[in-house]
Design a protein around this nucleic acid. Sequence first.
DNA 1: AATGAATGAGCTTTCATTCAT
DNA 2: GATGAATGAAAGCTCATTCAT
Lengths: 198, 198, 198, 198
Amino acid sequence: MNEKFYSLKKEKQDTMINGAMEVFAKSGYRHASTDEMVRVCGVSKGLWFHYFENKAGLYSFVASYALKYAMLEFNMRTMKEGMDYFDVRYDMEVCKTIMMNKYPYLPLFLISIAKEDDEEVAEVLRDPLSRYKEDMSELMQSADYGKLLDHEDHVLLADMVDHTIDALMTEGYRTAVFPKERYLDSVRKHLRALKRLL
Amino acid sequence: MNEKFYSLKKEKQDTMINGAMEVFAKSGYRHASTDEMVRVCGVSKGLWFHYFENKAGLYSFVASYALKYAMLEFNMRTMKEGMDYFDVRYDMEVCKTIMMNKYPYLPLFLISIAKEDDEEVAEVLRDPLSRYKEDMSELMQSADYGKLLDHEDHVLLADMVDHTIDALMTEGYRTAVFPKERYLDSVRKHLRALKRLL
Amino acid sequence: MNEKFYSLKKEKQDTMINGAMEVFAKSGYRHASTDEMVRVCGVSKGLWFHYFENKAGLYSFVASYALKYAMLEFNMRTMKEGMDYFDVRYDMEVCKTIMMNKYPYLPLFLISIAKEDDEEVAEVLRDPLSRYKEDMSELMQSADYGKLLDHEDHVLLADMVDHTIDALMTEGYRTAVFPKERYLDSVRKHLRALKRLL
Amino acid sequence: MNEKFYSLKKEKQDTMINGAMEVFAKSGYRHASTDEMVRVCGVSKGLWFHYFENKAGLYSFVASYALKYAMLEFNMRTMKEGMDYFDVRYDMEVCKTIMMNKYPYLPLFLISIAKEDDEEVAEVLRDPLSRYKEDMSELMQSADYGKLLDHEDHVLLADMVDHTIDALMTEGYRTAVFPKERYLDSVRKHLRALKRLL
DNA sequence: AATGAATGAGCTTTCATTCAT
DNA sequence: GATGAATGAAAGCTCATTCAT
């Protein structure tokens, strides 16, 4: 099934991937409608089912694709071994804004994937999602956590940062055009504030 | 509209409120179905529309009710002026487990309200939700934040705590019966870990 | 599920049963469409699914109903113990033309049920259909088979009669209004011809 | 249209004919899907519509082809003038099992053609089907019907034999590989039983 | 007040058919 | 000649909402 899709022109692949990402990111799996995908990217109803067995298969494909693509970009563009944790975290967000050039809704979609709780896709999501989380924590572990030595605090603080950044990202998508500069400013400020505390 | 509903027997009011809360909390506004409300609390389909104009009206009512009720309980049961922030936060969670006796799904519903992003109810939710958030932050501000004097850090740390606690709560609802003791233990541990850091 | 349907006014029940019988009899399970049922009996799409879980459930119900109803009528209206086989067989066809007053497509539906080979309903049809066949052969066995003593020949001859009659019946439904008199004449002639042979 | 098809390599013609026969025989005209024809014989979707105007045109062609081919084979391989009716009938079934070597689903398709009642192809089927039936009855009429002189009885008996044999044939196709020997045995037994009666 | 029968728009999915390559 | 991407009408089914009782 995926082979068929991959043999399409790259441009059309991305049109469809972007259409699906946008609708899934905004509405979640269940409430996302094929009709809206038709509307946002002009690809006919029947074609979605020509390339993907059903809605769940489409979601599974696009979600895996998004997770893999994001991971690849993070690995390529962020980390130098032993870099300061807060700088790594900021670079990741810069990286996300760069991804938006190709896949405008990818960062929002990543957040919505993690929140997704529909039974029909929960199972199919488990493996790629846990792999992504593992890779991410591995990537983050080679950062320099400085004064954060105590284990439990480290985990909680990272969670805090993640949740805050997700919230800022979600907020950014509320406007008609995503305000990249404003978003990155805000992230920077929050990170600095936290760093000062330690 | 609301007058009609309030003239019902209190018992029946609560049956309906609980039915709506359960279904809305589990499925979100859009995916919640009237049929399931009929199933979970045995109140006939037509009656929901007798008391509430439509699904959005019902949601608006139950959400406002939940927010007001929770706020009232928090104000009554928690705070003594100048109490340590971490103790206040823990007492709030105790308070939530007490509310569960009357409205078993209220704490989960509160979380789902904050996440709700359906356009149809976004507007009607804005006012009661922001009032609730204001009241909450006001309530929290009379706590003793001790060494946390720097403004921005204070907000971020509170956010972290809130998100972590929300996640623990959501997890608790995954089991058949909500494990109150286990939940409160877990909250306590996380708060202590954070307190040690400062 | 069936209780709900049975609590409808008998008249409406029969409207729906007749609509379903007509469409199923003409098109078979798979090709039968809900839209056509809406057209032939004016009952809205949603209502079919209010009373029956799905198309297979509707088919299962209507088929069982038709088989039971027919069996009941055959038992009430035909047989006096020890009657000549050919007379019994003819009386059965008279009985079918009487059933048409209430359920115009019932006799054609009975034939189409026996031919039905769709996997989705094959299983659900097995029990009621074999019960019907058993009852029918039991009913026929109390007839006087006269000179037909040899076992194998008896079965084959009965089959021949059944297939011929089914063909005549199917032919009758090709005209706008079912020609009861012509049909019964034709059945009578064929039976007489066979009887003469023995 | 047909000329184009006939200018294909004979081998490919038969591949397509067999693919169409298999799917039409198993599913009937309406429920037969182009996708399944692609699956069973590997000929691309577009090509079917390159050679045949539409599904009905394809059905019409393959049905006519099957009827003509069968008639030809029956005429070539069965009858010697004045042969006993029951022997002729058996030889016909032997002949069918021989046809299966070239067109495995032809005998089942012949049966399904006779049952076909879809309005869209009914008309286009009428002529070739009635010609086939005429030819068949002509072929059968030169057999020796022995003691069966009375006209009407003769027709009815022949019908019985035909229906029984069709049922046995259909049953044979339910197994993964058509059991030729077992099928012919069974036909032989039934014919002998009937013969004994006279 | 209370019920649940009834509706129709909208959902996911299928499928014959067209058309650019 | 040959392919399969692309289409849209129609299928089975769901669901908020209305209304007669």
